[in-house]
Design a protein around this nucleic acid. Structure first.
Lengths: 245, 245
DNA sequence: ACGGCTTGCGCACATCGTACGGACACACGT
DNA sequence: ACGTGTGTCCGTACGATGTGCGCAAGCCGT
């Protein structure tokens, strides 16, 4: 070993890359990094090793802060639910606009993190994360202030959320497929349309439907469809679950 | 032994374990075996190797009939959608009962194959499988016979399906978690309830809700909730998308 | 000074999807 | 009769994954 090894400190002499001045990793950091990785590269790209590298950490270092990958995903999902906004209601008639706002916020949140729908089927919504609890409580509050009883508020919430999640699942799957294809939405639909028309050969109604929307069905159409469907759901909820409806 | 023993020749005389008289594996066989494996052991248990073993085949033999695992999953999903029944409508007012029946069939189909919801987020509903196409066409037909225009029928179908898929996603996730825990539904909820109440500490409405359903929320309640929500959705669809509503 | 506690990490293992090339049985042109 | 495909099956191998285990190293109370 040379004497002047301090000049270019050899790996051995290095004063340990300041190890434990304070914990270099935290659960929150891990969750944030995972969220970012998921958003930029999709769900298939999330591996513990890659996540570790992002955090200048070893692959298995996360296991001191998180039990396993599934638990990490649950944490990230709850983090995402924290982004959903529930407008406050002023007057008793404001519940419908508040819930409408909440539904839109939920949808855009899901579409901002499209990978989430391939995790929902495993965690469900009933896993008791704090942000999910907060969201549910707020929605229940809105319905109650709107004159719903607790049971009816619960039923209404479940119905609305189911609709939003259902629509968003299908939309998010489309978004993911589109992102994976690397094409623009125009190219993608143009390339897919012949196959769709072929598959609809024996189905006249589907053929008419496709023909009617040749090249369309872009974001604005999906937004309108969502809005209209939501109005249907709220209409029915009003009619069946309130006395004033 | 009869003279025509060539019909059942001895094992040794048999002309090679009939290799290529006709292909030993078929796409349909593979899909069926995969479906059975998924139903009995869940989505994590589906690996190409295990599937091969089930079929007395090598691990990579399936790739002559199926491009890759994702494509296999798409095929299985379409197979499952083939189980959904759409009752026929006689009179123009029958659309609502027909769609109700279809919605129930869709839900029970999903709950019979709970793993499917963790695949829906990747394939979506718009992947053009023949059974999905047939299902959509039938639903559109029911709505059209009920007096809906094509656009309105499409909108109504999307709304109803979204609601059903949304509800079923959450229910299927619960079922999967329950199956993984290996406990009975009673044990499971009993064990989870303290955690739920703890998580609801700062959320009075959720606390009341949990208190009100101590130990309940079993299958009958979920069925009733689904039915009621579906009525809401159909009510709104009637009101907003038909002229007669 | 010393021993426990917490945090991070290198290594190893089992398992996964699947690319590749060979083997085998048939169909067919010559 | 004999090559020459052609379609089917599988043994092997490669890279990647989740994660259990044990060690190292700083920190803290004694």
């Amino acid at each position: 070993m040379p004497a002047d090894e301090q000049q270019v400190p050899s790996v051995w002499a290095r004063p340990r890359p300041q190890r434990r001045d304070h914990p270099a990793l935290s659960r929150q950091q891990i969750v944030s990094a995972a969220l970012q990785l998921l958003d930029t590269e999709g769900i298939d790209a999330l591996s513990m090793r890659k996540l570790g590298t992002r955090l200048n950490a070893g692959a298995t270092s996360m296991y001191t802060h998180v039990a396993n990958k599934d638990e990490l995903l649950e944490l990230v999902v709850d983090e995402v639910y924290g982004e959903v906004e529930v407008p406050a209601t002023g007057d008793p008639d404001g519940w419908r606009t508040a819930i409408t706002g909440c539904a839109h916020s939920l949808r855009t949140t899901i579409l901002r993190h499209p990978w989430i729908v391939s995790v929902l089927g495993e965690t469900g919504l009933a896993y008791l994360g704090p942000n999910v609890m907060r969201l549910m409580e707020k929605m229940l509050a809105v319905f109650e202030e709107g004159g719903f009883g607790l049971q009816e508020a619960d039923q209404a919430m479940n119905t609305v959320v189911a609709y939003v999640v259902g629509i968003s699942t299908s939309e998010a799957a489309t978004l993911t497929a589109l992102a994976r294809s690397g094409q623009s939405e125009q190219e993608w639909t143009q390339r897919l349309l012949p196959a769709a028309e072929e598959a609809a050969r024996d189905h006249p109604r589907l053929r008419r439907l496709y023909a009617g929307q040749r090249g369309r069905r872009v974001r604005e159409d999906r937004d309108d469809g969502f809005r209209l469907g939501l109005e249907c759901v709220l209409e029915g909820v009003t009619a069946r679950l309130t006395s004033t409806g």
